[in-house]
Every structure is written in structure tokens, then in C-alpha cells.
């Protein structure tokens, strides 16, 4: 956030009342101060402390970071999170784009398409996961295995195999989130000036040519943003591994945020708030660095 050093001269003259302004600012300052700014500062303090909430916190330098990096599970968690993010990109990134491009060409009842596409987004994620957990039943009478049986495939062990568990989580997560992205793309697509398509036709472009030379360039900057937002979101995946598999089988779905949660809140090993904040900070820094590099590299690409 860049704040110009010199405010516009009219600013002071526009200032009125004093008390009124303070009263209106108060709710925001109170809520952000207590539940956003202070916790952010506190996470930095806590990451270099050991605290059990009973005895006073003790400064330990980088011990928490060292402890996290020496945790034999950290490598697994980072790998799994990256695997989840990669799979989510492969499954989840092209699907909403394709759906939105087709939907933008629909003349009648586009509202019905949009309604259906967004429907999974409004289902509470916990409900969705619990429902899908049943769909993923590994026996040959499970819902998905029954469907696969119709075309002579399966049964697939889904959540019970360490190979299949992660893709299963990704499929559900994609199902749950795709609708939101579809609506974003669709909003960008209906704003494509029709003259551009006319012009492309004059130049002899077919339908795919128009998609490639008009539609895609128009979506480029929004696609770049949804891509990095998706990576940032999937890097913090928690609900699916927590409710589907609790990190199993064999830690195959243990993600970074699940590890943070376990450090802080798990029944037996929990209460290690220093380690939990140290790991969250490292994840946040990694994401910040990734975004910075991403925007630097792609700056010249966006229209």
C-alpha cells in the first residue's frame, strides 16, 4: 500500500467535526485493531517465544523455526500441500474457464447455467465433505464405485489408499470451488466488445480462432489473478484433509495447515503455539515471495 507523502491541499479543509469522524471510525479501528492488526504483530512475537499460557512466555530466538524444520513430518506436509496445489491446478484451473467460455455463448437460459454452476459453492463445505465421504465409500457398492461398475471399472479404493486419497480430495475441492471462478470469468466475458468478434470475422477467423485471438487475450489479466489466488488458496487447504482423512492414510494427506492445527490444537500433541505460529509464518512468507516473483514475471504479460 503506497501512501503519497503529500496529501491533497483540500484535504484539511474538507475535514469536519472531529468527534463525528472518530465515532464512525471507532468500530473499524476496534475490530481491526483487536482481531487483525494485533494478532498479526503477535504472530511475529510468538514465533520467537515458548509459551504454555500458564508461565510467562520466554524468548527462544529461532528455536521454534528450527524445531519445525527438524520435524520429520514437515517434508511430507510440504510435499503433500504442493501435490494438492498441483493437482488442483491441473483439474481445477481449466474446467471453470472452459465452462465460462461455453456459457458466454449460450443465448437462452444462461441464468440457469450460472445458477447450476454456482450451486456447489453455497453448500457448507463441511456438509459437502461429509456427503462426498460417503460417495467415496471404497466397497463396490459405494456410490462412485457403483457408477464406475456400470462401465466396467473399479472398484477404486478412494480415501483408503495413499495413492488415491489426495486426488479424491482434489476432485471434491474442485467441485466445491469451480462455480465461483466460473462467475468471475463470465463477468469478464460478457464485457468483451462485440466489435472485436466482428473484426476477427472480417479477418477470416473461425470460432476457435475467435476464442484464441479475442476471448483469451481479453481474459488474460483475470486468468493471471485467478491462477495465483488459487495457488494461495490451495496452499492453505485444511478442511478437506481434516474432515476426509485427518491426514491419513499414512500421512498421505497431511498438509501444512493441518500440521499447524495439530501443533496448536490436537488433543495429545497440541498446545505448541510457538511452533504453530512459526510454521504459519513460514508458509505466509513463502506465499508472499511466490506472489512477488509471480507478479514480477507476469507483469509484462497482462494486457
Amino acid at each position: 500500500m503506497k501512501i503519497p507523502a503529500t496529501a491533497r491541499p483540500s484535504l484539511l479543509t474538507r475535514m469536519r467535526g472531529g468527534t463525528g469522524t472518530v465515532v464512525f471510525l471507532l468500530p473499524m479501528l476496534f475490530v481491526f485493531g483487536l482481531f487483525s492488526w494485533w494478532p498479526i504483530v503477535r504472530s511475529m512475537i510468538m514465533s520467537v517465544q515458548v509459551t504454555n499460557l500458564v508461565t510467562p512466555a520466554e524468548f527462544v530466538g529461532l528455536d521454534n523455526f528450527r524445531a519445525v524444520l527438524n520435524d520429520p513430518l514437515i517434508g511430507t506436509a510440504v510435499q503433500n500441500t504442493a501435490w494438492f496445489a498441483l493437482l488442483a491446478l491441473v483439474f481445477g484451473y481449466p474446467v471453470p474457464l472452459l465452462m465460462a467460455v461455453i456459457m458466454s455463448d449460450v443465448r437462452r437460459a444462461r441464468g440457469l447455467y450460472a445458477l447450476l454452476a454456482y450451486l456447489p459453492v453455497v453448500i457448507p463445505p463441511a456438509v459437502a465433505v461429509l456427503l462426498w465421504r460417503f460417495f467415496y465409500d471404497a466397497s463396490d457398492t459405494g456410490v462412485f464405485n457403483t457408477i464406475l461398475g456400470w462401465i466396467g471399472l473399479g472398484p477404486v479404493p478412494w480415501l483408503e489408499s495413499s495413492t488415491w486419497a489426495m486426488p479424491s480430495l482434489v476432485i471434491e475441492a474442485t467441485w466445491a470451488a469451480a462455480g465461483g471462478t466460473v462467475i468471475i470469468y463470465l463477468a469478464a466475458l460478457v464485457s468483451v466488445p462485440p466489435e472485436l468478434y466482428d473484426a476477427a470475422e472480417v479477418d477470416g477467423a473461425g470460432i476457435l480462432g475467435k476464442v484464441w485471438h479475442v476471448t483469451m487475450p481479453h481474459l488474460r489479466s483475470i486468468m493471471l489473478i485467478t491462477l495465483i489466488l488459487q495457488i494461495i488458496g490451495t496452499a492453505q487447504v485444511f478442511l478437506e484433509p481434516y474432515l476426509f482423512t485427518d491426514g491419513g492414510p499414512d500421512n498421505a494427506t497431511l498438509t501444512v495447515l493441518l500440521l499447524v492445527y495439530n501443533y496448536a490444537f490436537a488433543n495429545t500433541t497440541g498446545g505448541d503455539y510457538g511452533k504453530a505460529t512459526a510454521l504459519s509464518l513460514m508458509l505466509a512468507l513463502a506465499l508472499a515471495a511466490l506472489s512477488a516473483v509471480y507478479f514480477r514475471v507476469t507483469r509484462s504479460w497482462s494486457a
Partner: peptide, 9 residues
């Protein structure tokens, strides 16, 4: 700031 940073503090 990712939500993850805020959870514990």
C-alpha cells in the same frame, strides 16, 4: 495476510 497466519494468535 493469509488467514493461516491469524489462526493461532
Amino acid at each position: 495476510v493469509p488467514v493461516v497466519v491469524l489462526l493461532v494468535p
